[in-house]
Deep mutational scan, measured.
Amino acid sequence: NQASVVANQLIPINTALTLVAMRSEVVTPVGIPAEDIPRLVSMQVNRAVPLGTTLMPDMVKGYA
Rank of each mutant, 00 (worst) to 15 (best):
Met56Asp: 04
Asn1Phe: 11
Val49Cys: 07
Pro57Ala: 11
Pro12Ser: 08
Met43Asn: 04
Gly52Lys: 00
Glu25Arg: 08
Leu51His: 11
Ser24Met: 13
Pro33Tyr: 08
Asp36Phe: 10
Thr28Arg: 06
Met56Pro: 03
Ala7Ser: 07
Gln2Thr: 12
Arg47Gly: 05
Ile32Ala: 01
Thr15Ala: 11
Val26Ala: 07
Asn8Gly: 08
Ser4Gly: 03
Met43Arg: 10
Asp36Pro: 00
Gly62Arg: 06
Arg47Met: 11
Asp36Tyr: 13
Met59Phe: 10
Leu10Ser: 14
Thr28Trp: 09
Val49Met: 01
Val41Ile: 11
Gln44Met: 14
Ala21Gly: 07
Leu55Ile: 14
Met22Gln: 02
Glu35Val: 13
Pro29Lys: 04
Met59Asp: 10
Met43Lys: 09
Glu25Lys: 08
Val27Pro: 01
Ile32Glu: 02
Gln2Glu: 13
Leu40Ala: 00
Val41Phe: 00
Leu51Ser: 15
Tyr63Leu: 05
Val45Pro: 03
Val49Phe: 02
Asn14Gln: 06
Ala16Gln: 15
Ile37Asp: 03
Glu35Arg: 09
Ala16Pro: 13
Val27Phe: 01
Gln44Pro: 08
Pro57Leu: 00
Ile13Cys: 12
Ile11Pro: 02
Val26Leu: 15
Met22Thr: 02
Asn1Cys: 13
Val26Arg: 06
Ala21Asn: 15
Thr28Ala: 13
Val41Thr: 04
Val41Lys: 03
Ser24Glu: 11
Val60Gln: 01
Thr15Gly: 09
Met56Glu: 06
Ala3Ser: 10
Met43Ile: 05
Gln44His: 15
Ser4Thr: 04
Ala3Leu: 11
Arg39Trp: 11
Asn1Ser: 15
Leu19Cys: 09
Ala64Met: 13
Asn14Thr: 03
Gln44Gly: 05
Gln44Asp: 05
Val60Arg: 01
Leu10Ile: 10
Thr28Met: 11
Ala34Phe: 05
Arg47Tyr: 07
Thr54Lys: 00
Leu51Met: 15
Leu40Lys: 00
Ala7Lys: 00
Ser42Thr: 14
Val45Thr: 09
Thr18Ala: 07
Thr53Phe: 13
Ser4Tyr: 01
Met22Glu: 04
Asn14Lys: 04
Ile11Ala: 02
Val45Ile: 05
Ile37Arg: 06
Ile32Cys: 05
Gln9Phe: 14
Thr54Cys: 05
Asn1Trp: 12
Ala21Glu: 05
Leu10Glu: 14
Thr28Val: 13
Pro29Cys: 05
Met59Gln: 04
Leu19Asn: 06
Ile13Asn: 14
Pro12Val: 06
Ser42Trp: 08
Gly31Leu: 02
Ser4Glu: 02
Val30Glu: 12
Val5Pro: 00
Pro50Ser: 11
Gly52Ala: 03
Gln44Leu: 14
Ser42Phe: 08
Met22Cys: 05
Tyr63Ala: 05
Thr53Asn: 08
Asp36His: 14
Gly62Ser: 08
Val5Ala: 09
Thr28Gln: 11
Asn8Leu: 04
Val20Ile: 13
Ala21Met: 15
Asn8Lys: 07
Val5Cys: 06
Arg39Lys: 15
Asn1Arg: 06
Val45His: 03
Leu51Ile: 14
Pro57Asn: 04
Thr54Gln: 02
Gln2Lys: 10
Leu55His: 01
Arg23Tyr: 05
Ser42Ile: 04
Ala48Glu: 14
Tyr63Arg: 04
Ala34Asp: 06
Ile32Ser: 02
Asn46Gln: 09
Asn1Pro: 15
Ala34Ser: 10
Leu55Pro: 02
Val49Glu: 04
Glu35Asn: 10
Val20Lys: 15
Thr53Leu: 09
Ala3Tyr: 10
Asp36Gln: 13
Val5Leu: 01
Gly62Gln: 08
Val45Ser: 03
Ile11His: 02
Leu40Asn: 01
Ala34Leu: 03
Ser42Asp: 12
Ala21Gln: 13
Gln9Ala: 14
Asn1Tyr: 15
Val6Met: 03
Pro33Ile: 06
Arg47His: 07
Met56Leu: 09
Arg39Ser: 10
Ala21His: 15
Val27Arg: 11
Val6His: 01
Asn14Met: 10
Glu25Val: 08
Lys61Leu: 10
Glu35Ala: 13
Ala48Ser: 14
Pro33Lys: 07
Leu55Thr: 01
Asn46His: 06
Gln44Lys: 13
Gln44Asn: 08
Glu25Ser: 10
Pro50Cys: 09
Gln44Cys: 11
Met22Val: 06
Arg23Ala: 07
Gly62Glu: 09
Val20Leu: 14
Pro29Glu: 05
Asn46Trp: 07
Ala7Pro: 01
Asp36Leu: 11
Ala34Thr: 05
Ala64Ser: 14
Asp36Ala: 12
Leu10Phe: 15
Gln44Phe: 14
Asn8Met: 06
Pro50Gln: 10
Val26Glu: 11
Gly52Arg: 00
Leu19Glu: 09
Thr15Trp: 11
Met59Lys: 00
Val45Met: 02
Ser42Ala: 12
Arg23Gln: 05
Thr18His: 06
Arg47Gln: 14
Pro33Phe: 10
Val30Lys: 10
Thr15Pro: 04
Thr28Ile: 10
Gln9Val: 14
Leu17Pro: 05
Thr28Ser: 12
Leu10Lys: 10
Lys61Val: 14
Val45Leu: 06
Ala7Phe: 00
Arg23Asn: 06
Val30Arg: 08
Pro12Thr: 08
Ala34Met: 06
Ala3Gly: 09
Thr53Ile: 08
Gly62Leu: 07
Met56Thr: 12
Asp36Thr: 07
Ala64Glu: 12
Leu10Val: 11
Pro57Met: 07
Pro33Cys: 09
Ile13Pro: 13
Arg23Pro: 04
